[in-house]
């Protein structure tokens, strides 16, 4: 770098940034004598105190994200999903991250941000939910049986294994086979009045692929329900993190009161460096 290069003088763009943040979600009404203290809060126009008296948590949750209160069928579908996703389970890497926070005596306030971040992965996490929602949105207008047939033909023609295929995010194998819990959750969701096109299309698609060990993944069930409830793909990943958070926190807290010996520590004899 012998020569010295000349660059332009740095100057501000003076871009027209907004003077105030705009929201359509929440309005805080100031008190009469202090503009920094709210006297009332409205969620999409509904008074929060009135919502507390009249509606369920699930109703207000739906309102917060969708802007309107849900029908009974929508609320039932959302509640069923929230129960289904409430705990990723003690073997999920996100839960194990929470457990490490707890048993390591990290401040329990850090359980949620740490574990929720791990629940945001492209595999078994929020990233996969978002991808699955894009996949479903793109293919819902097709015939699910035809889709399955073409999909299998393409895999064979390209000589690629299903494990390496990124074609059907949210659907496939976990640990080598059908994820039975996801299948069970999906089958129960399908019986609900609010089950929509995404759940039904996905069900038909996987029924044509089941003999190949391909079925629902939990992320796929979440994706289908989110689409049927009108959520956008970008929201789906974050909502998946949110809905799994109770389980993450519970498992983290459970280990927080236990000694550091309460979790396995792999012995040197089982630690192999491949070089």
């Amino acid at each position: 770098m012998a020569e010295e290069l000349k660059h332009e003088q740095v100057r501000s763009r003076n871009e027209p940034f907004a003077q105030r943040v705009v929201t359509q979600i929440w309005q805080e009404e100031p008190s009469s004598d202090n503009p920094y203290i709210a006297a009332a809060a409205l969620c999409h126009g509904y008074d929060l105190f009135e919502l507390m008296e009249k509606r369920s948590f699930v109703d207000v949750f739906y309102l917060l994200f969708r802007g309107e209160l849900p029908t009974k069928a929508e609320a039932q579908l959302l509640q069923a999903l929230m129960i289904a996703l409430i705990n990723p389970g003690p073997r999920h890497p996100a839960t194990r991250a929470a457990m490490n926070v707890g048993v390591g005596k990290t401040d329990p306030l850090h359980i949620l941000p740490i574990a929720a971040a791990v629940l945001g992965g492209q595999h078994s996490g929020g990233g996969e939910v978002e991808s699955a929602m894009h996949f479903l949105s793109k293919n819902l207008s097709s015939n699910p049986h035809e889709f399955a047939k073409t999909f299998l033909q393409e895999l064979t023609a390209k000589n690629i294994t299903f494990e390496n295929s990124q074609t059907t995010p949210g659907f496939g194998k976990r640990n080598g086979g059908i994820e039975l819990m996801a299948l069970g959750i999906a089958n129960r969701m399908l019986k609900l009045e609010g089950a929509g096109n995404a759940l039904k299309w996905s069900s038909e698609m996987v029924s044509a692929l089941a003999s190949h060990g391909i079925s629902w993944l939990t992320t796929g069930v979440a994706a289908a329900v989110f689409i049927d409830l009108g959520f956008q793909p970008r929201a789906g990943g974050a909502l998946f993190q949110l809905m799994g958070s109770p389980g993450l926190i519970a498992h983290g807290l459970e280990l927080a009161s236990k000694p550091i010996l309460a979790m396995p520590f792999v012995g040197d004899e089982n630690y192999v460096i491949e070089r």
Binding site: Q24, I25, Q27
Partner: peptide, 9 residues
Amino acid sequence: CEDIDYQGA
């Protein structure tokens, strides 16, 4: 409170 521009319902 008024520094947030509410434009919702």
